[in-house]
Design a protein around this nucleic acid. Structure first.
Lengths: 201, 201, 201, 201
DNA sequence: AATGAATGAGGATTCATTCAT
DNA sequence: GATGAATGAATCCTCATTCAT
């Protein structure tokens, strides 16, 4: 009846796959072109039509949030893992800072307004990061004093993390923590951290 | 092409005034909307046609440079004034950080990246800030150790300076310097600093 | 951004129709205003938004090429048809010269210059015309002597084809061929030529 | 009283000099960028303000006319010189065709309408060229037959004159005249022609 | 008479968003 | 559910033209 090639409709299972592809594509595009990259570029990279993007995300902010949500989730996981201490969690945090320009923008933006166009959501996500860190903050820690010191320090490190290569960004992040007098564990994604611990057992 | 009444052409004398109006407008617009704000908004705010903007500044970068150049100039002036010490110069620097979103972006960008599209000229301006500061950096100062520590610290404070009101931004800036263990003088523009000194004489 | 009623979106089926409408509109606009006519005029004439034009054609050159390609194609068809001789093919060529200002510009530009901003692709299209003609050029033909004579003659006729009405342009074209001592068949589009031949059978 | 540097006002004598500079500049700019070049570029090349251009020429067409008027004038001079024959005058004409893109456009445009945006004036100038040539056209000359043959031939040669270098354009022009079976004298500006004749005396 | 700044319309181009299929 | 075409608003930039000085 319809001899035109209809694009394969793989049914609802594809929906989840598409969403994941969009988030992954957005992460890449953000890394390459910044948070202002055209949405069409994200859809193209994900290999889907633009309509699919709008089905999953009502607007530009929702896409960014979805990407950052993954980062924040990893930090929370790191914080919940048995036996981690604050230095290790900061290491995971720092890894995300060196890895994702968007994540940096998030932490900059903090309560900061639309300066960088990452609105409301930012506060929520930023709050989750704060809770994850504070859970591990020991009594006499350098950042345990004044109410805001913890997130101010995180924002400061975010400010320092610039440079074209990941190596350079990591070097500057570590220099920043050193200047703050805060000890940081190894800079790695949570998965690796987990794997290492499993090996130790 | 336009038979209607032309708005007043005030002749060439207006040129200097227009240029100043454009820089002032750009400063405001940048503060409100960031460095990516449309150039047309700047022209409108300045009360001139778009062509005037292009006459005075060949491209977007030239506008930004003109705005930031004023900030950097004030810091340099502060550094050259008799009797200023590093704390006072940092105070002037901090004032500009709390005042101008664009200036923050400049210092973030440091020698860094096109992440925020603040290109080449940023390096030059940032270098001038560094020289102004380093001139006053005493031997044993907290930031006099490692080669990059000085500008990393500046970038860190820039990262911390967020928030909708100047007061909040200043509070966060001071908290950041405190976390760095660096003493900062009064947070004010250079003009005020100068006036105070004159009074003392 | 637009809460108003959107004009009918006829869906993807319209794509081919729109492309054809754009080419037809471009042909008209070129005839009226030359190859430098604003692209927006073409889009308006075609009854589509400007974005559609850019979807189908990446740049101004692509539009011109699409238009001229049709002209060249007809000449090639005429050259490939059974039983045509050089005079008949020149007749078809001449018909396009009298019909389309853009086509004239193409042949003027020949391998030539950016004088009239008809760049690279012009050479390719012009080359196809030359091959189509040379295929039928008999040994002793007036234009079979010097290497470039053929296309120089074509350019010369193009130069002569001026005037506000097609009739006038045709008269001048025929005068030009006569001055060159070259015999030309009936000045008609290829379709008509074909129909005539079918009748003869 | 007026300590501003006023641009030297050299009085009315400068007016004629300015006009000449504008025409010369226009000729250069036209050669480089075509007839559509911005008027501001012409004023800049001439070293005068844009207002001066408008003082001397009411619009774009007037500038072009002034430039072409010089070309036509030289051809008329050549035609009026003692002892010149049609071949020599055609040589001068051809020199201008190979030299000036604008001049070619003029002759193309002939009675031809706004295709190339050289309007009314064109007819007048073209008419002067025709009269200059016809004055020397001997009875049995190749182009003396049909009423329009003369100017059609000129337009044809103009059509052939393409190419990036003057040498190439001259070669093609001569090929065109050869195809027309018309003899052409040496291709040079009138001044040189004159000098040569003086030497012969 | 000359200067050159200002105006503002116009053209190119890009994207967010909608929607027929 | 997916596709990807269409829309059109917004932005950038360029110039023709006017006019105070």
């Amino acid at each position: 009846m319809n001899d035109e090639r209809r694009p394969t409709n793989e049914g609802p299972k594809a929906a989840a796959r598409n969403r994941a592809a969009l988030v992954a594509a957005a992460r890449e595009i953000y890394a390459e072109s910044g948070l202002d990259a055209p949405l069409s570029a994200i859809a193209r990279r994900a290999g889907v039509g633009q309509g699919v993007l709008y089905r999953h995300f009502p607007d530009r902010a929702a896409v960014a949030t979805a990407v950052l949500d993954e980062n924040v989730g990893q930090i929370e996981q790191a914080a919940q893992a048995r036996g981690t201490d604050i230095a290790q969690v900061l290491g995971v945090l720092t890894w995300h800072q060196t890895e994702s320009a968007a994540f940096i923008a998030l932490l900059h933006a903090d309560g900061a307004a639309d300066r960088c166009r990452v609105p409301a959501y930012a506060a929520a996500l930023s709050g989750r990061v704060e809770r994850a860190l504070r859970k591990h903050l020991p009594e006499g820690h350098r950042l345990a004093g004044e109410r805001d010191d913890l997130m101010i320090a995180v924002a400061m490190v975010s400010g320092a993390v610039t440079g074209p290569t990941r190596e350079q960004r990591e070097r500057r992040a570590l220099a920043a923590w050193r200047l703050l007098g805060v000890e940081v564990g190894p800079v790695r994604p949570f998965e690796e951290l987990e794997e290492l611990e499993e090996l130790e057992e």
